[in-house]
Write a protein that binds this DNA or RNA. Structure first.
Lengths: 160, 160
DNA sequence: GGTGAAACTATGACTCA
DNA sequence: TGAGTCATAGTTTCACC
């Protein structure tokens, strides 16, 4: 049986993704020029990439400093949960707007959470009001970021 | 003296940022409807936000699975560097395309690196070829992500 | 508001299985 | 022959002055 969600990407698809990853507001006409196609063909391909969920979102990177969000922290969480029933912990944490990432990791620490707030006071406030409510959390360890050298989510796209 | 780069954002600016963070391909006309302005006014504000570097980039979130990038890892690096001369380490690491984030953190571990690759073999390959070249690295500790529950860089924008 | 340049829609041609 | 992909032309919408 053929899987509808199978990702079959040719060279042109990868080129389009590469261009859109750099600048999502690029026009179809500009993409068409780069890849040597008609704009309509580009439009079709982009729509298919959206349908196949290869493209997940067109988003805007905003300077956190402009919004006074000066504090970035990583929190390691130990939780005593049986296998399979750990969705409760992660889902509750993922719901917090300031939380940017929640990962289930290998090792002693079960979860890794990336969170961005105004300052240390607001971080403590979120931990008090949200984390303490969540059951099964054994302990947390917080690492504060002093300086960010690089921060992007762009993938390495191999143009064959 | 007035700082050119000062961020003075009113309610409409925040509304625009909120909309563009959700979908950077939104048309100026749609933004104008939402915030109750003329499209031309929206265009002007967006350009100013770009100039002031409040808007850093319009980017596209691509499904890593579609590009066979199945491995996500966080690497903690201990390096023995004197104060001020640690740019060498971070800059070299930041240059690696697969590295998405490099943070200087408080605590025993100096740096935290987020890296996304095809598999564990390619991760090891990068660590061998790149990290071993970098001087002053004392030790590294790698945490493999088993499952990602949430991953976004969107900020909490307070619409006053 | 008006002009030029885009995006969108529809149609037809081409390719490959 | 049928599904998939690309080019062309016509219409609409948008950006920009």
């Amino acid at each position: 049986m053929i899987n509808e969600n199978e990702f079959v990407l040719d060279k042109i698809d990868l080129q389009i993704l590469n261009l859109m990853q750099e600048n999502s507001r690029i026009s179809n006409a500009d993409i068409a020029r780069e890849v040597g196609m008609a704009p309509s063909g580009v439009l079709e391909r982009v729509k298919k990439l959206e349908q196949k969920k290869v493209i997940q979102q067109y988003t805007t990177r905003i300077n956190p400093v402009a919004l006074q969000q000066k504090l970035l922290a990583f929190i390691f969480i130990k939780a005593n949960v049986g296998p399979g029933c750990d969705n409760l912990v992660t889902d509750e944490i993922a719901k917090i707007p300031e939380v940017q990432e929640v990962h289930h990791v290998a090792g002693d620490d079960c979860y890794l959470v990336k969170i961005r707030t105004y300052d240390s006071a607001s971080l403590m406030n979120i931990m008090r009001t949200h984390f303490s409510q969540i059951p099964n959390i054994q302990s947390t360890r917080t690492t504060i970021v002093l300086e960010t050298v690089k921060e992007q989510q762009q993938l390495v796209i191999p143009i064959k």
